[in-house]
Amino acid sequence: MLPSRRFERSTGLFVLLLVTSFLVTTFDVRADGAGVGDTLREGAQALFAPVQRLADSLTRPIVGFIDGVSNIAGLREENDRLAERVRGLEQEQAEVLSLQTQLDELRKINDLAPPDELDAVTARIFSNGVSDLDHIRWIDRGTDDGILVGQAVIDEAGLIGRVDFVADDSARIRLVSDPRLGVGVRDLATNEVGWVEGQGGDFLTLKMFNAVEPVHEGDLLVTDGTRFPPGITVGTVRETASAEVGFQLISSVVPAVNLSEADFVKVIVGWSPLDATQPVDEEQPARGNPLIIEQ
């Protein structure tokens, strides 16, 4: 048993630390990505990022081995699924070729230039969050490479997330699966716009406030150009749903990107949400898709 005076002192320290933590959290939440909290994060990143990269390179083979062993059982099922998918894609390819011809004709008619290629910086993920409740990734590029808070992060399949903190040579991505991240989307099948939010799990939530048309299972959702560059694939609708009168449409979405397999990513540095509202200059067209800017 501890001496009572010692115990009182430690209880006092315990309460002091709790109060300190509470105040620190309050200030950090209130500062919302600025202030002392971010300065401390930058310092911690400068100190720990090199060690984390080293740890990542050392542990990557171990993680890969364990991941491979745990996936063996699922490989046969995955193979069948992919074979089915290939058959579907071959069919789609024929349709796409036909549509491509139509699109080319429309472009000629409207005299539209193809959208500029957006500038992007390639980065590699070197660290995860520290718990299952963290839906973040750390990448090995920062302000030195032109990365800024708010920029979209993609891979070959679609949208991964958004940069929400930047240090000199590293940055933190908040994933689309994070409940705090919202993405404005457009349903390519109906052209209805809505909002996709993370749920922390495998699926996202789709909300459409003024939808007239229903959404159908398999509809492709892309970014609508409000906070992210337009046209980036976000995911596909998982359940058919329609809006009842006076209520919003709610459905769930399968993300286009398998977040657990993301390794190399691209940060789009050549686009600002402000571009979406700028008038198109014929001499110097704004970055992004001119089709969206005109809306």
């Binding site: 430690s10 320290l13 630390l17 105040l23 620190v24 959290t25 933190r172």
Partner: peptide
């Protein structure tokens, strides 16, 4: 107690949660 607090603070700094949550 200080070791516990420091461990939590480090988790907050290198994770995605607001500072102080893991510290608490």
């Amino acid at each position: 107690l200080l070791v516990g607090f420091t461990a939590g603070l480090l988790m907050d700094l290198l994770g995605g949660s607001p500072l102080g949550l893991w510290a608490m």
